[in-house]
Simulated scan of single mutants.
Amino acid sequence: MKQVLFFLLGVALISCDSGSNESTDDNFDRQAMLVNWADNIIVPAYKNYEGEVDALEAQAVVFTNAPTEESLATLRAKWRSAYLAWQWVAIFEIGVAETNGLQGYTNMYPANIEEIESSMLSGSYNLELPSRRDQQGFPALDYLIYGLASSDAEILAKYENNAYKTYLTDLAKRLQTLTSEVVNDWESGYRDTFVNNDGSSATGAVNKLTNDYIFYFEKHLRASKVGIPAGVFSGTPDPTDVEAYYASDFSKELFNEALACSKAFFNGQHFGSTQTGEGFKTYLDYLNSISGGTDLAQQIIDQFAAIESTSSSLTSSFSQQVESNNELMLNTYDELQKNVINFKIDMLQLMNVKVDYVDADGD
């Protein structure tokens, strides 16, 4: 994924960053919120994602053993299912997901096609190197199963070369390895570490995951999925910058899934269920009840509805949308930006949480 250079604090950030490093002791049960996040949202979502990645890896082996139109179609279906499942865990860049660089190795787009071809055909590559992040993950698989040629017959012909087979299975295995590291971490002790780190300091789990949530919404959902291809930062729209560029009808579905996850997590909604527990909404409701201020939680929920309404008119292919009617992409970006402000200024100020990252894209 294209990265924005983060080196200056915006004026708005400075205005909400003048407090201390500690959150106000407001008596809200942070541990109950962390338990809900861990047990009902994060771990179940990661387990689901792990299952989808396992299925993708298994089908990659099936396909490379017998490259046919049928096995290619099944591989594409498994890739899509796993990519959708990824949207439900991409927010949670904490614990091993942070230390092993899960986000960068999984979904950096656009993929570097020239380097992929060079590495693949040379047979010399190390996917653990940070410099290889744009040559792997879902974007690289997108290229290998959709973008190698203009027809399925021509794509299958490419797999007569064992170099393509090896690279494909290596990419799928790499996703599987990274994912299992994260799931094993949560299940072998990190869950308890996370839940028990319920203090109000900058290193507390609530503060860290709150920052992760806002960073994801701002940089990955708002900027990378919409703003960058729409030319918000460069001034020049680029249809090749969209997520799932080669599977051209899939970018909106990925966006919708990521938006649904962001909304569900705000509401404390259990993964795969309509049931809700402690989360940002209940925390803000509690803070509003003792401060008598604006109903920020409802304001955020209403803005999610506005984002959904505006983005519903986007075509299934964001690359086609950029080329045919980029104004709608820009309008969607603007609606997303309103919740960035709600989160980054108003919610953090009410929760007295400091921003722990720096940006320079004019927020």
Rank of each mutant, 00 (worst) to 15 (best):
A77P: 01
E93L: 11
T64L: 02
W86D: 01
L75M: 08
L102A: 10
I94C: 03
G104S: 15
T106A: 14
L72P: 04
Y83W: 13
K78M: 07
F92E: 04
L75C: 05
W86Y: 11
E98Q: 15
A77N: 10
S71L: 04
V62R: 08
R80L: 12
L84P: 01
V96R: 15
A97N: 09
Q87W: 01
I94Y: 11
Y109M: 06
V96S: 14
G104C: 13
E93D: 11
K78P: 04
N100R: 11
A97G: 08
T74V: 11
S81I: 08
N107H: 02
N65A: 12
R80W: 06
N100I: 15
S81E: 08
V89G: 03
L102F: 15
W88Y: 14
R80E: 14
L72F: 03
T74H: 06
P110G: 10
P67A: 08
G104Y: 15
G104L: 14
K78I: 05
N107A: 04
Q87A: 03
M108F: 15
G104I: 14
M108A: 15
A90Q: 13
V62L: 12
A73D: 06
W79T: 02
L72S: 03
E70V: 07
A66G: 10
T106I: 11
I94A: 02
L75T: 04
Y109N: 02
V61Q: 08
K78E: 10
A90G: 07
Q87S: 07
N100H: 08
G104H: 14
W79S: 01
E93F: 04
S71W: 05
A90F: 05
K78T: 09
G95C: 03
P67F: 07
S81G: 07
E98S: 14
E98P: 01
S71C: 05
E69Q: 11
Q103V: 14
Q87D: 00
Q87M: 12
A66L: 12
A97I: 02
T74E: 12
P110K: 11
E69A: 11
A73H: 01
S71N: 11
L102Y: 14
G95F: 01
I91M: 13
T99W: 08
L72M: 05
P67V: 09
A97C: 09
A82H: 04
K78L: 06
V89A: 01
N65K: 12
